[in-house]
Lab assay of single mutants.
Amino acid sequence: MSGNGNAAATAEENSPKMRVIRVGTRKSQLARIQTDSVVATLKASYPGLQFEIIAMSTTGDKILDTALSKIGEKSLFTKELEHALEKNEVDLVVHSLKDLPTVLPPGFTIGAICKRENPHDAVVFHPKFVGKTLETLPEKSVVGTSSLRRAAQLQRKFPHLEFRSIRGNLNTRLRKLDEQQEFSAIILATAGLQRMGWHNRVGQILHPEECMYAVGQGALGVEVRAKDQDILDLVGVLHDPETLLRCIAERAFLRHLEGGCSVPVAVHTAMKDGQLYLTGGVWSLDGSDSIQETMQATIHVPAQHEDGPEDDPQLVGITARNIPRGPQLAAQNLGISLANLLLSKGAKNILDVARQLNDAH
């Protein structure tokens, strides 16, 4: 009898209710805020589980004197976190989706994509230029951005401005803007500013005609071990179906173009009346040469937790077992079709030249 009692006690200790789920994140304040929001949602869904947040620095956090596009290494903000995932030191990792490459290392998958916040870019102005827009900034004003995508589009749109690289986390960039006289304004992701509670610093939100956004911008991705079915089931509740389908289309477009950090590629997606609209573009580094096109596809946005595919093969690095396969494939095909259209119009040449120029500098 006593033996059975011990077995029952052991089973209770090993039951999922007692389990601590370890969540990996970057150390920056924004990353911690984003991770806290994901953990809060998981806690609400699984009140019996405990969650421990483990923060670590990544290569991208450490190399702050070089433009991201020049470092010449993929997975700048993800490699150390993936290493911890691989060694079973954490069970899942919360990322900004735009930091996750469209091809993940073997053994990993994006197990959830959370509801997207505003994906557009924002302009934050130096205190002396508050009330201005990019259009009304004085001639030769210097605007800071760490992104080739932003610089290429904005140089084309605002030729009277000069664009220079600015690195560091959000706090560091804002301090550089406010305390030094080098920059009249800087460009940042609206979602990051909003998550930090800095709505009052948003001086201008850039519309798609001015600057399309990065693939996955404004959404959070939760990376897990691809074979860890328990954790895949656990994080599945975080999937937002519309965000998922938009981001599958965007990531398929980028992957098929073979774009990345070192080339200016941008997108804009919208879901309306059962249609998914995808606009994508590529630019030369100075913005003088560009190709942009829009395509659409009829896609039914499923309700969360309709029964999805059981075999769960990944699409552009994403596993969404609780979302039907048909809409996911339709979104992926839309991204591939748009990429093929741009490639047929000469996108590869623009991107190759951009890559060579970026590598040469």
Rank of each mutant, 00 (worst) to 15 (best):
V143N: 03
R175D: 07
V20L: 08
I186L: 08
N169E: 06
K272T: 11
T243Q: 15
L343T: 09
Q180N: 15
P313K: 08
G236C: 15
S96Q: 01
L104H: 10
G197Q: 01
V224H: 01
V90H: 06
G308R: 07
C247A: 15
I71C: 09
G111W: 01
S337T: 14
T35P: 01
S147D: 06
V130Q: 11
C261S: 01
Q194R: 13
A31R: 01
L351E: 14
V235S: 01
L220A: 14
H256Y: 05
G346N: 07
R22I: 14
E293S: 12
V263K: 15
E162K: 14
L104A: 08
V235H: 01
L42Q: 01
V267M: 15
K345T: 15
A152N: 07
D352S: 09
V94G: 04
P324A: 07
N169G: 06
H160M: 14
A297T: 12
A320R: 04
Q217F: 01
G24Q: 01
F163W: 13
F129W: 01
L68P: 08
L64V: 05
Q314M: 01
K132V: 09
S141L: 10
T35M: 10
E293W: 14
I336Y: 01
T243M: 01
T136L: 09
E82P: 01
L206E: 01
S284E: 01
R325P: 14
V215M: 10
D61C: 01
K227Y: 15
A152Q: 04
E117I: 15
K132R: 11
Y277M: 11
K128A: 11
L238S: 04
L100G: 01
A266R: 04
C114E: 01
A44N: 13
H126C: 13
G107N: 07
W198M: 15
L343F: 10
E210T: 08
H305L: 10
L85P: 01
Q332G: 08
L134F: 07
L137F: 07
V263S: 08
V39W: 06
L64S: 06
R149C: 03
I231H: 01
A122K: 04
T66V: 14
S146H: 06
P313W: 03
H239A: 12
T319C: 12
E293G: 14
P309N: 15
S96F: 01
E258S: 07
A44Q: 10
P309K: 13
L338C: 08
R156H: 13
V282K: 04
A360I: 05
E250W: 01
D121F: 01
V94S: 01
E310S: 05
R251D: 01
T109H: 09
G168A: 01
I53R: 08
I299G: 01
V224W: 03
G259T: 13
D233P: 06
L351W: 05
A55C: 08
A189Q: 03
V267N: 15
A219G: 08
Q292Y: 06
G60P: 01
G111E: 03
D312R: 12
K98L: 01
M196G: 09
E89D: 12
L315K: 07
I350N: 06
L232A: 08
H120P: 04
I113N: 01
M56I: 14
Q155Y: 09
V353N: 15
G280D: 04
L174I: 12
M56Q: 13
S69Y: 10
L76K: 14
G144W: 04
S57T: 07
G221E: 01
R150G: 04
V224T: 15
V94M: 01
L170T: 07
E293K: 11
D65P: 09
E86K: 14
E223R: 01
H305I: 14
G216Q: 01
N322V: 11
Q217G: 01
G60H: 03
Y213T: 01
Q304H: 08
V130W: 06
F77N: 01
L343A: 08
L232T: 12
V38D: 01
G346F: 07
Q204A: 04
E306S: 11
G221P: 04
S37L: 12
K87G: 07
W198E: 12
H199V: 14
A112S: 09
E80W: 07
K98P: 03
L276W: 01
T172H: 06
L238D: 11
L92M: 12
P208K: 04
A84M: 14
P324Q: 10
L154A: 06
I71T: 09
E135S: 08
E73H: 15
K70Y: 10
S344E: 13
G308Q: 15
D307E: 07
D311F: 03
T298L: 07
A270V: 12
G111K: 04
R225C: 11
L234V: 14
K128V: 07
A55K: 07
I336G: 01
Q292H: 14
N200I: 13
G168T: 01
F253T: 04
R321I: 10
I231A: 15
A191R: 01
D99T: 01
E86V: 09
D65A: 07
V143Y: 06
E209G: 08
S147A: 01
E89K: 09
S45C: 15
V222Y: 01
M295V: 13
V301S: 06
T133A: 07
Y277N: 10
W198F: 11
L245V: 09
G218Y: 01
W283K: 01
L232F: 11
R246M: 09
L334F: 10
R164G: 10
E223G: 07
C247S: 10
D233K: 10
E210G: 04
K140A: 11
